[in-house]
């Protein structure tokens, strides 16, 4: 783990020192050692703040999308995990990011920790999370401490990950980790939801979306949601989504996000992690990817040469009436 961290620092320092990038985006420690946050490094002597550990969940590709770079034509170095690299490839496929202006450091990933799952094990605030092999130790502000198996605390989509190594990178922070031989995607916990009756699904969704506050965190944290100020969710004409915040409009709001990233979203989970009220958005996005895979054998963002599913077609697409 720490050798990847050292290599990230080394690569970042070199890129900054040689003036290949204006700034480098990696992860650094947050308010306390229980979390990692995005770090923006502007000079080679600041690279020591960069870290890599299983808390480095942010998909930094978000900071490459339209309106995010500061200045707009900045040359940016960025760290990507396997899932992050797929969102980057999706952006590159549609030329939404200029390949010439980015320098990508790929980080092989062993899965990231779902901090909220750890948090819920305590009433008090978690202030430290440390790792030793496959054991995760979490400590609270009052000094309570519990140990967990790492596999129990990683995200669902990490446990079923088929792309632990970046599919696109200029340099790698380590040798690739072993990849599963069977590349058939796995969809984790959505089967449980699929098995419910229509009325039960409706009730579950309604309960979840009732608490949505329409803060746009899901949309802005999403690396492949690029409309920004032109989002139809903010638009009054057409009023596809009403401004009233209620269950139905909230789900409609999320549908806009979901259908607009269909074919680009590899369900990296950035939206889910950003949601302040913990709406299980991954359910929707993973289901969408599952159906896309069943329909077309398509997985978003795995190859630069491929076109996104909805920007192309085949005369003999195997569905619909002919």
């Amino acid at each position: 783990m720490s050798d990847r961290q050292a290599k990230i620092r080394e690569l970042a320092a070199a890129a900054l020192a040689e003036d290949r990038v204006d700034y480098f985006i990696g992860w650094k420690q947050g308010i306390n050692p229980s979390e990692a946050i995005p770090a923006f490094v502007r000079s080679a002597d600041e690279v020591d703040q960069l870290i890599w550990n299983p808390l480095s969940h942010h998909n930094l590709t978000t900071f490459l999308k339209r309106k995010m770079p500061d200045p707009p034509n900045a040359r940016i170095g960025v760290c990507v995990k396997g899932c992050d690299s797929r969102t980057l490839v999706a952006l590159l496929q549609e030329e939404l990011v200029d390949k010439e202006r980015i320098y990508v450091v790929g980080v092989p990933c062993d899965g990231v920790i779902d901090r909220r799952r750890v948090e819920k094990e305590f009433a008090d605030e978690v202030v430290d999370i440390s790792f030793s092999g496959d054991v995760v130790t979490a400590t609270t502000r009052c000094g309570d401490s519990k140990e967990f198996a790492k596999g129990d605390m990683t995200f669902d989509h990490c446990n079923t990950c088929r792309y632990p190594n970046p599919v696109y990178a200029d340099d790698m922070a380590a040798d690739p980790v072993p990849e599963p031989e069977d590349r058939t995607p796995m969809w984790g916990s959505i089967e449980e939801f699929e098995a419910l009756s229509p009325a039960e699904k409706d009730a579950k969704l309604a309960d979840a979306f009732e608490t949505c506050i329409r803060c746009f965190a899901c949309i802005h944290a999403c690396p492949v949601c690029v409309c920004w100020d032109q989002c139809v969710n903010r638009c009054r004409r057409p009023a596809l989504v009403g401004q009233r915040v209620d269950t139905k409009e909230n789900l409609m709001f999320q549908m806009v996000h979901m259908f607009h990233v269909a074919g680009r979203c590899p369900s990296c989970g950035a939206c889910d992690r950003a949601c302040p009220v913990e709406i299980p958005l991954y359910l929707l996005h993973r289901k969408m990817n599952k159906e896309l895979y069943d329909m077309l054998g398509f997985e978003p963002g795995v190859s630069l040469e491929e076109k996104p599913a909805f920007q192309t077609f085949k005369l003999d697409d195997p569905f619909g009436e002919h």
Binding site: I37, F40, T62, D70, R214, C215, F216, A217, I219, H220
Partner: peptide
């Protein structure tokens, strides 16, 4: 503001 993603979470909570 570099790491701000310009959502409105802070103001809504």
């Amino acid at each position: 503001a570099m790491r701000c993603i310009s959502c409105g979470t802070c103001t809504y909570v």
